[in-house]
Design a protein around this nucleic acid. Structure first.
Lengths: 188, 188
DNA sequence: GTCTATATTTGGATAGAC
DNA sequence: GTCTATCCAAATATAGAC
């Protein structure tokens, strides 16, 4: 059973997570998070000692969330090929958010890279988790040698689709390209 | 013949352009630009009335620069297919910068989108110029109906490659995928 | 644990001397 | 046209009352 303090901490992380996604990390201020979470600015520092600290918690949360999702997919979807398609389906499932805000993983990595931020490498772990899982599925389809290469290719394709769909605010393009990705998976 | 004032203005734009690419727009301060360009902070406002104004000039410069490049390619490269390959070759030619800083077009659009910046749409013009030119080349290869769809696909592939190469700081991946793009162009 | 000040720093922008 | 000095707002962070 969680204590009240932990619930507030959790609310801060969730609020920051969403704002970092929608507005970017640098552009999101403590006031933004405080207002959205409904707590006083000063009270932050009881839970986090700095803004970097909140970012670290957000990234940790996202990595865990991705891991949990993939574990669930492993349990629910027996066929590796269907698991890969489930991955591609994220694009269409999240099409509205993606057209508006891009990919939560890619846009954060891109931003932190430019900031030369101390948590940049931690952020790339989000990609690395997907990469490893995709490679595992692809390997089970018989691609022993180039599973990682194909996994990176798939990640890369998905990433390009989100960036362009965001730049042009084009959900139709996104759906079309997501369908192309499915065909690519079928041909594996 | 350019006046001295215009040369300084030009130097400000070039310096800002590079810093926006390497550090991002928000994260680049007037002091950063002033230090790098070797002029006093206060003197900026003789040439630009705001930071947004510098951004507008940088974008205008980039769009023009892209247009010039494509006009040159049209003049130098007779075959549409080779023109497309010249586009793909940007990836390998700029591999060092891309691995370090990502795509100058994509990363700026992504950032301005999140900032809900007034010049965001202006920035997407950089993509739009490429898109139109790519579609023109693809149309000349006989793809009347789906030239724009294929142009967007190519843009999107290139964009994904830059983002992942940047996230993983992986030039080998970039070269491998650039080669895949060439094969795709050959199959058009 | 939570809040209200407030300190401190940074960054965008202006005024005015030269 | 260029510089120095300075203002103002915003943002991170802290102190301390409750």
């Amino acid at each position: 059973m969680k204590e009240k303090g932990q619930l507030i901490r959790q609310r801060i992380v969730e609020t920051a997570d969403e704002l970092f996604y929608r507005q970017g990390y640098n552009h999101t201020s403590f006031s933004d998070i405080a207002d959205a979470a409904g707590i006083a600015r000063g009270n932050f520092y009881y839970y986090f000692k700095s803004k970097d600290d909140i970012l670290a918690a957000v990234i940790r949360e996202r990595v865990e969330s991705i891991r949990d999702m993939l574990v669930n997919w492993d349990a629910e979807i027996p066929e590796p090929r269907n698991r890969l398609k489930r991955y591609a389906a994220i694009l269409t499932n999240m099409q509205g958010d993606i057209a508006q805000y891009g990919c939560p993983v890619g846009s954060l990595c891109t931003e932190l890279s430019k900031l030369e931020h101390m948590h940049y490498e931690h952020a790339t772990e989000m990609f690395a988790v997907f990469r490893g899982w995709l490679a595992t599925q692809i390997r089970q389809l018989g691609h022993d040698e180039d599973a990682d290469v194909l996994a990176l290719h798939l990640l890369s394709r998905a990433q390009g689709i989100t960036t362009m769909a965001n730049a042009f605010r084009d959900s139709e393009f996104l759906k079309r390209e997501a369908h192309e990705l499915e065909k690519w998976i079928d041909a594996l």
